[in-house]
Design a protein around this nucleic acid. Structure first.
Lengths: 160, 160
DNA sequence: TATTGTTATACTCTATAACTATA
DNA sequence: TATAGTTATAGAGTATAACAATA
């Protein structure tokens, strides 16, 4: 079979979907935020973890996993990376001898503040085309999509 | 060091960022669309590829890679998967003996139509809380973020 | 019994280097 | 010399099973 290639490629059918465009938008965000966090030796996921630890000092690893929707086994290396960089300490829980309490160090608190400022600048760059209210509405719409996903685990079986 | 764990964990600081909430929203979308595509033996990326091939019959693999922002090496196994399922054929280009033209089969066109309907239903489920105009605005905002990313490869060096 | 942290493991997704055959 | 398809490979990111210590 012999066919000539079209000159201009379109993705019109996929563009009707919020999911497709969101994937492309998030790709752009990930690339930019990764660059923004590199000077702090933080990745997206380690920055998120550090932020939650600073905001909730003393939380257990399993609580961090729940908050960030990360499986417990994957938390171990992630927290160890923060410990290795001197940003977080693993303290023994006073109430449960199985558990570890995650506490930010002074360096961790400071790095988190500066990284948060860098990420805020990145986020403003990416949403520069949006008005302040539009940006707020975007975040609210994304939250509503996140919430929509929470009710769909059974996937149609219970919809009858 | 002994610390008691907080009872309620928050991620308030991260919630100010469109990127963080978008990641969580997209996680929900990915889980739901993956389930929606499973009956067709399609993954997110193979569905996107099939859709572009049906919309642009005869395009070359490198054009498909450009359209979907996928590196050329990763296109090979992806297209082979569509060929194996009888949805796409690799035809020889009539103008360039190096190139392959990707053509959908009749089954491919039909499967694409039915999968597109399933994905449309999924997309409506996920955006059920949004009005029709709000949903359109969401997609436009996501496009503007995607566009913002295209200008930022150099990362601040040229901003001076 | 159930839960916390952990190890080992595997699977997907994505990115890079280098080869071949053509242009 | 550049490009199209390809191979091999490596690194993230993420998910599951199973274990020891403790509740």
């Amino acid at each position: 079979m012999m066919v000539a290639a079209p000159t201009r490629i379109t993705d019109q059918s996929l563009r009707q979907f919020a999911g497709y465009t969101m994937k492309r938008a998030f790709n752009a965000i990930r690339a930019d935020v990764t660059a923004a966090l590199a000077p702090f030796e933080l990745r997206m996921v380690t920055f998120s973890a550090l932020s939650v630890i600073v905001e909730n000092p003393g939380l257990r690893q399993s609580q961090l996993a729940d908050a960030l929707l990360i499986e417990r086994p994957n938390i171990v290396a992630l927290v160890d990376e923060l410990v290795r960089h001197g940003l977080v300490e693993k303290a023994k829980s006073s109430t449960d001898r199985r558990a570890l309490s995650l506490v930010p160090t002074l360096l961790g608190v400071d790095s988190c503040a500066r990284a948060t400022a860098a990420v805020a600048a990145h986020d403003r760059r990416m949403t520069a085309a949006l008005s302040s209210t539009a940006r707020t509405e975007l975040i609210e719409m994304l939250k509503s999509i996140e919430r929509a996903g929470e009710g769909l685990q059974n996937d149609g079986v219970t919809t009858a």
